[in-house]
Write a protein that binds this DNA or RNA. Structure first.
Length: 415
RNA sequence: GUGGGUGUAGCUCAGUUGGUAGAGCACCUGGUUGUGGCCCAGGUGGCCGGGAGUUCAAGUCUCCUCACUCACCCCA
């Protein structure tokens, strides 16, 4: 029989890896709660139109990376490729919006994108998200970045780079995009790479991010967003920066920092790591004031960020193996019931342990205890069985051992 | 979607100009009749990813295919 194998880009997380995800989620829950955020869990499956309306039809994510399929009645459903759209949908649908009310949510879970897998990129990947609705002030952006910084510190990550930019708004970005397109059109087209010749018309901001050396040279002379912000955006960005400076956040201004999803405006930021491969971005976010309205809700401003858990997990050390408090080594077959009962009573006292019921040799049972990093080995063999006792062996290097009545041993543990 | 790399024992990997399969670790057994780690000896374990072809002979050469992986693209 051929082995059934997992589908491409989907991973099994065994304990050592799964623990890192739990560590990230625990830290996020702890930190975000301190900032007044509440947990929101939304479905993994949504109507396809939700993502078309929010992320943008022209993006790669919607255009060619979604897991989209019809349900049994022919309705088009999509495995969520990101979290924000679903959170916005839930927010709007619940009707929690009221003028002047700020809502703050965090969420985590699996996202799905049909991409070619590589280091730090899976088809099913996991994100930690935070979203703020109803706050248009620069302070909301700044506080979100502070919270992200606090979260990363909580999980013990250092050496990360914060990058910051403003993408402008509906009032000033179109003019900037046009200026960019004009600029690139004025250049010798031969010197632009194939991708950029296409991108300069479809998404000129992306050209700024091109890694081809020739393109980079061209981009150096391109107009900067900083010079094209409208007065409102300029003021908003200046305030965000001054608040970050006041909070001693170290960041790099990157006028070429762009976002892949259409809904971002004004403040955008990204956190990158070194040594985790080409997919170096571990978190990213920004402001998305028009998004709520675009999925049929009220005109409420929003900001948020997403952290890539796979990429953060790569930066975490393996947790030390906690080992076992005890290991019950049953050598005499007749003592199997006794061993199970003994283990149950110890667990009821909060101890961690396993019992082995394989009727095997003393040597192999002790090796098993050693392998499992057990601190105490409880031996139940022929003589113990006949006398109703247990041999308690300390597994440390020069550990002692003694044989005591089972009842006495349990009574002693209780104390 | 486009490139590159890799598939041999449970794991990490050797395998010469084609000649019928190896090591280390792990596991099991024994040395030590009921005592682990260290040491020594022995043992279990492989359709060499799959298929076709060339050849007296293919892990090795050719083609196809599948899987994994890294990068582009894109993104967290």
């Amino acid at each position: 029989m051929a082995k059934v194998q997992k589908i491409k880009g989907f991973a099994d997380l065994f304990p050592v890896e799964a623990e890192k995800y739990a560590r990230l989620e625990d830290a996020a829950r702890r930190v975000f709660t301190r900032y007044g955020f509440g947990e929101l869990r939304t479905p993994v499956l949504e109507k396809t139109e939700l993502f078309q309306k929010s992320i943008g039809e022209d993006t790669d994510v919607v255009g060619k990376e979604m897991f989209t399929f019809p349900d049994r009645k022919g309705r088009s459903l999509t495995m969520r490729p990101e979290a924000t759209a679903g959170v916005v949908r839930a927010y709007v649908e619940s009707g929690t919006y009221q003028p002047g009310l700020v809502s703050k949510y965090f969420t985590f879970g699996p996202m799905f994108r049909y991409e070619r897998p590589q280091k730090g990129r899976q088809r099913q990947f996991h994100q930690i998200n935070a979203e703020v609705f109803g706050a248009s002030e620069p302070a909301a952006d700044a506080e979100l970045i502070l919270m992200l910084r606090a979260f990363l510190a909580e999980v013990g990550l250092t050496g990360l780079t914060f990058e910051l930019n403003s993408l402008g708004c509906a009032a000033c970005r179109p003019a900037y995009k046009q200026a960019l397109t004009d600029f690139f059109n004025s250049l010798d087209q031969e010197k632009l790479c194939q991708d950029c010749r296409r991108r300069k018309d479809t998404n000129p901001l992306r050209v700024l991010d091109c890694k081809v050396p020739d393109c980079k040279d061209m981009v150096a002379g391109a107009p900067s967003i900083a010079d094209h912000l409208c007065p409102d955006c300029r003021e908003h960005f200046a305030q965000v920066r001054s608040m970050l400076d006041a909070a001693k956040v170290t960041y790099v201004l990157n006028p070429r920092l762009v976002r892949g999803l259409d809904y971002y405006i004004r403040t955008t930021f990204e956190v990158t790591a070194e040594n985790i491969g080409a997919q170096a971005s571990v978190a990213g976010g920004g402001r998305y004031d028009g998004l709520v309205k675009s999925v049929g809700g009220p005109d409420v401003p929003g900001t948020g960020f997403a952290c890539g858990m796979e990429r953060l997990a790569m930066l975490l050390e393996d947790a030390p193996n906690p080992g076992l408090d005890f290991f019950v080594a049953v050598i005499d077959e007749r003592a199997v019931g006794l061993g199970m009962d003994l283990a149950e009573k110890l667990r009821a006292q909060g101890l961690t342990g396993e019992a082995s019921f394989a009727s095997s040799s003393m040597k192999s049972r002790l090796r098993a205890a050693n392998r499992l990093n057990a601190r105490t080995c409880l031996i139940l063999g022929e003589s113990e069985y006949e006398s109703g006792s247990v041999t308690v062996k300390d597994m440390s290097e020069d550990g002692e051992q003694r044989t005591v009545k089972i009842d006495d041993y349990i009574a002693q543990i209780r104390k």
